[in-house]
Nucleic acid binder design. Structure first.
Lengths: 107, 107
DNA sequence: GGTTTGCATCGCAAAATTACGATACAGTAG
DNA sequence: CTACTGTATCGTAATTTTGCGATGCAAACC
């Protein structure tokens, strides 16, 4: 993928998070974590029709994107990163209300 | 990509939109459309370091994901689909407040 | 000690994405 | 009619993602 210059740091972070969420298996993991608050890899493997290694990799992607937090208190258990969803929502809000604070539009 | 059964329709739609937004070039397009409200393909080609055919393809992806609306009044011009961002935000809200109405958590 | 359990990582094959130039195609200008 | 302009689409190469089995690795258990 070609690098796009001129992206703000927020846009870059948002793109990474969107990409992580843009996979059905990973979105399912996030939904499951939202319901259960906390769970181990094995719980997710039970729910998903995927091999254990694949689920583990998806968790890694989610962790790297800052969407999921792993290894709480040394235990290999996962939960949602609370800031993550908030960041996405705030980003969407900023985009969804374009020009709300744009001087050119009279703010 | 393996199909994940058991995804709700909303989750499936959200995943498609997230995937579309999870590309720096496309996110840049969305940001640009948010600023300009409306623009033609050529305007976006000028802004992005990509070939015209590539930009056109990205626009197609965004259109298919329901994020962008094209060809207004027969004119080849694009604008954001207003419902799209709202849908993403509502989805995030539902996930981000997990168990807010979960009996187990005392609601 | 050895064994089992739960998870991460490695290595690889298949599939999908990304980007590009070439080309098609409609509308406008000459 | 011809030429040009702006986009979309096609075909293709390079890259990335996805998914799996095999393997590594640490902790718990015998």
């Amino acid at each position: 993928m070609k690098t796009i210059e001129g992206l703000t740091a927020e846009e870059e972070r948002a793109a990474e998070m969107f990409r992580a969420l843009g996979n059905p298996a990973r979105l399912r993991i996030v939904a499951e974590l939202a319901r259960r608050k906390v769970c181990q890899t094995g719980d997710l493997v039970d729910v998903l029709p995927l091999a254990q290694s694949t689920v583990s990799q998806h968790l890694k992607v989610l962790k790297e994107a800052g969407i999921v937090r792993g290894d709480i208190d040394g235990e290999p258990c996962y939960c949602l990163e609370p800031d993550a969803i908030r960041f996405v929502m705030e980003f969407c809000e900023a985009v969804g209300d374009p020009g709300r604070c744009d001087p050119a539009s009279g703010c």
